[in-house]
Design a protein around this nucleic acid. Structure first.
Length: 848
RNA sequence: GCGGGUAUGGCGGAAUUGGCAGACGCGCAGGAUUUAGGUUCCUGUGGCUAUACCGUGUGGGUUCAAGUCCCACUACCCGCACCA
């Protein structure tokens, strides 16, 4: 019978639906394993082929763990709040809740179609009030501990979404989502003090098993730098505090720069002789988008404050003060001391504005020609009074100590990480459970009133003044103060998309608990997540945010571990076939082109002429405009879910990007067809391995098992293909086939289950024990070794496995080819290794 | 500019501690089956001026032996980007 994947997959999915073999049991005596994938955002477009890569990978891992006797938690849910749904709702005049419901239904259908072994009784949906009740609860706890606060800050404002963005959501000066320019705007926003956890977010990376590129990217993003804060006095008597990583260069500070937003400028306004110029510059800086600021970064701009100056505290010299947008308001103190001799940016600015450049570290080139920025022992302090003669390395602590003694400075650590802007002026998000009372200020909603439900509104359009659509719902907005009972107004901003995903893995542990985000019992049993796989794009967003929330929950005694995830891995993207590249085309497309142009060469020439370099560039992203988007529904229809699963695991190195290939899918289908043909009819006999295949079976068990653990799925599958090829040479026994089916089960669960049943094996393959290998049975009685003569392989020989070095050598030397090569030569040295023998020879002395 | 990564046949990609480079798959070529196409099966497949020689981005080095280790480069990809 032909391999009827459609019927088989339907059959077994129905069995799983009914019998729930993948259900996790809280409190079981078995060892637990919690495998996690990033829950999808249920878009209207449905699942794309990018999703099955991480999903199948973790499905394979958890299916194997289950077979190894673990109590596995492998859950799924939906991160369903967010702008695309809201925009879709606005465009089509449907309620976002309805859109979400439909999209989740479609995603659920597709996920079940692919046969993932999720525990479907634990599905979470971030838009469910029973879920976001706890998102709001966590927010209230943050507020109580002073980690949530409202502040007027310059924020990233997307001109198209009409919404505030977190720093992490701004990519190259444009909105990560819609690509529109982002400008800076002053707005009152809810903020979360992630900066309070900056040091711990770095330190605790030591305790987790994250791939290195995730660790380094997080460390760089948090951006710790050590230095000192130094207080300068202005001629007005005001104090200007700066942060510097180079306190040793203080004698070389010849001017100061304030960011255009600096508070002192307003205070000094009456004193400024060039106030018009200054305010014009401030206005220009504010109106620039981040992109423009970046583009203009090559050329420094600024304005000198006329009428005010500063005093360098180490030598009493009066130095000018500028404002410039190369100094950021949001980092350090928003003000710097400029040392043009030893900082590239200051040097560039000084050259343009004619500031003095004084060398205080010798060892570089002429500082009038370029800044000397080396921080190591190569620089020696000069022109610096008590620091003269010290290396930079020694001068930094010496100066810091001196500043502290004089009371004009202190050691300081700064982070690039900023507090998390937590407000969004949109409808489709969690309402922030806070109330503004003119008497009491911001008052939290009592926990008994959670969840604070999102009310229905007429229109989801954001308002032009940048307020949330909720602000128009006066019935909802006007309320009473929980504290004094007087009239009060609700917060109308909602939480960002990242809120619900910051703790969802905890809810999976106990998804229906009405009294807590999860029970202590469930949290103690399942924590931490043993293995979390996800995309690199979330490294400085979701992954960092959820680590922050988890640490906070740990601090208030809610969760039992400091870190949420014990292990983090990451997959590469699935790219598309290049429709303009001849080699990427299917045979049908190639044939059509060859027919049209007469020959393959003519067809290729045409493509090159038409598309230039693109015709030979095989890797491109999937996009609608290129028409190379692959829909999982189509692949499942044409090849079956098992083939899609197998192919997406076989496509290449899991961590690297890989291009989809229609042709290569067929190879995986062919492999499954061959397995089907081999095992569709019952093989008689006992369940031991055949003599001829035994070693190959043991080797495959070892290889497949180890490769799954190492996420080397492509070579695991290659090992099964190799085993299949071995079976082609020596007909497999019933036991041989059983082993292959067990190994293949995590990858192609439907087909294996069907064959398992046809063979009449007990139970289900997916709940049978993972096969064991015996190292001693993996080797043949004889082995082939390579023979090198003067470093080049000249022959091979077969020797008994247990032969000692002398025995091996005698076999080698008896080889005809070796004997010929040694004629008239003197054997200088022999090296015998398990897999090869190396002979070093030189012409014999008497032969010369 | 800073940080991270990659480079191996026509293509995707394999290669413990240095130990027969190219596993496995695609594609391609030939053959069998078929009225034909497709499917399936078998054989071959790094290059070449072929018993030899050359081959893992480039140039050096260490070693009996280098894709793997060391030094110096080049190209491409990803992240951050005036962070004082």
């Amino acid at each position: 019978m032909k391999y009827d994947y459609a019927a088989i997959e339907k059959k077994w999915q129905a069995v799983w639906e009914r019998e729930k073999p993948f259900r996790a049991e809280t409190g079981s005596d078995k060892p637990k394993f919690y495998g996690l994938i990033e829950f999808p955002y249920p878009s209207a477009a449905g699942l794309h082929v990018g999703h099955p890569r991480p999903f199948t990978a973790m499905d394979v891992v958890t299916r194997k763990k289950r077979m190894e006797g673990y109590n596995v938690l492998f859950p799924i849910g939906f991160d369903a709040f967010g702008l695309p749904t809201e925009n879709f709702a606005i465009k089509n005049h449907v309620h976002p809740a309805k859109v979400t419901k439909d999209n989740i239904a479609n995603f659920t259908r597709q996920l079940k179609m692919l046969g993932f072994g999720f525990d479907w009784d634990r599905v979470v949906d971030t838009t469910d009030p029973e879920y976001y009740k706890w998102t709001q609860w966590i927010f209230l706890q943050l507020w109580k501990k002073g980690l949530a606060y409202k502040a007027t800050v310059p924020v990233n404002w997307c001109t198209s979404c009409k919404c505030v963005l977190a720093n992490e959501e701004v990519v190259e000066g444009v909105c990560e989502r819609c690509g529109s320019p982002v400008i800076r705007k002053e707005k009152s926003q809810w903020m979360l003090k992630i900066t309070e956890y900056a040091q711990r977010l770095i330190d605790d990376l030591n305790d987790v098993d994250f791939i290195d590129r995730v660790k380094t990217q997080q460390i760089n993003w948090i951006g710790r730098s050590t230095g000192a804060e130094v207080t300068f006095k202005a001629t007005t008597g005001d104090e200007i505090v700066v942060f510097t990583t180079r306190p040793d260069t203080l004698f070389g500070a010849t001017y100061m720069v304030l960011s255009p937003e600096h508070a002192l400028i307003k205070k000094w306004a009456p004193l400024l002789q060039n106030l018009d110029e200054v305010t014009a510059y401030q206005r220009l800086a504010a109106s620039k988008s981040d992109m423009e600021r970046t583009e203009l970064s090559k050329e420094k701009t600024g304005v000198k404050l006329a009428g005010v100056a500063a005093i360098n505290p180490v030598n009493g010299r009066e130095i000018p003060i500028f404002i410039s947008d190369y100094v950021l308001a949001t980092y350090g103190t928003g003000a710097i001391m400029a040392v043009p001799a030893h900082d590239d940016r200051d040097w560039e600015f000084a050259k343009k504005f004619g500031c003095e450049i004084i060398e205080v570290v010798s060892g570089g080139e002429d500082v009038q020609k370029a800044a000397f920025t080396a921080k190591d022992e190569t620089g020696i302090l000069v022109n610096s009074d008590f620091l003269n003669g010290l290396t930079v390395k020694d001068a930094i602590p010496a100066m810091t100590k001196w500043l502290e003694e004089k009371g004009i400075g202190k050691a300081k650590v700064n982070f690039k990480l900023r507090d998390w802007v937590f407000s969004r002026q949109r409808y489709w998000g969690e309402p922030i459970p806070m109330v503004w009372c003119d008497h009491c200020g911001w008052v939290p909603l009592p926990e008994s009133e959670l969840p604070l439900r999102l009310p229905d509104v007429e229109s989801y359009e954001p308002t032009d003044d940048g307020e949330s659509p909720l602000s128009k719902m006066t019935d909802w907005v006007n309320t009473t103060c929980p504290h004094c009972g007087g009239p009060a107004k609700r917060e109308t901003d909602t939480m960002p998309q990242w809120a619900g995903s910051s703790w969802y893995f905890l809810r999976y542990m106990d998804p229906h608990n009405p009294d807590a985000l999860a029970s202590k019992e469930a949290l103690d049993y399942w924590s931490p997540v043993d293995w979390y796989n996800g995309g690199m794009e979330h490294t400085t967003l979701h992954l960092l945010y959820s680590r922050f929330w988890h640490k906070f929950l740990y601090d208030i005694g809610v969760v039992p571990t400091k870190e949420p995830y014990a292990k983090r891995t990451s997959h590469g993207m699935i790219l598309g076939q290049n429709p303009r590249c001849f080699d990427c085309m299917t045979k049908e497309q190639q044939t059509a082109l060859v027919d049209e142009f007469g020959s393959e060469d003519a067809a290729r020439a045409h493509l090159v002429e038409q598309y230039g370099e693109m015709a030979s560039h095989p890797i491109v992203k999937m996009s609608k405009s290129l028409g190379n988007v692959v829909n999982p529904d189509d692949i499942v229809r044409d090849y079956g879910a098992d083939t899609l699963r197998l192919y997406i695991m076989f496509i290449g190195d899991f961590e690297k990007a890989a291009a989809w290939s229609d042709n290569a899918v067929k190879g995986c289908k062919r492999f499954l067809d061959r397995v089907w043909t081999l095992a569709e009819n019952r093989i008689d006999g006992d369940e031991t391995y055949s003599h001829a295949n035994e070693a190959a079976v043991h080797r495959a068990i070892k290889k497949v098992g180890e490769d799954i653990e190492a996420m080397k799925f492509n070579t695991a599958i290659a090992a099964m293909m190799t085993l299949m090829n071995t079976f082609g040479e020596h007909a497999p026994s019933r036991g041989d086939v059983k082993a292959l089916l067990l190994l293949l089960s995590p990858f192609a669960p439907h087909m294996v289950e069907e064959l398992w049943e046809r063979q009449g094996f007990a139970g289900y393959a997916s709940t049978s024990p993972w096969p064991q290998y015996d190292e001693s049975k993996m080797v043949e009685a004889e082995k082939e070794i390579a023979i090198q003569i003067n470093g080049k392989v000249r022959a091979t020989a077969v020797v008994p496995l247990e032969a000692d070095d002398d025995a091996v050598l005698s076999v080698v030397l008896s080889q005809e080819k070796v004997a010929r090569a040694l004629e008239g030569m003197e054997l200088v040295r022999t090296i015998v290794k398990p897999k090869m023998v190396s002979l070093v020879v030189k012409p014999a002395a008497n032969n010369k």
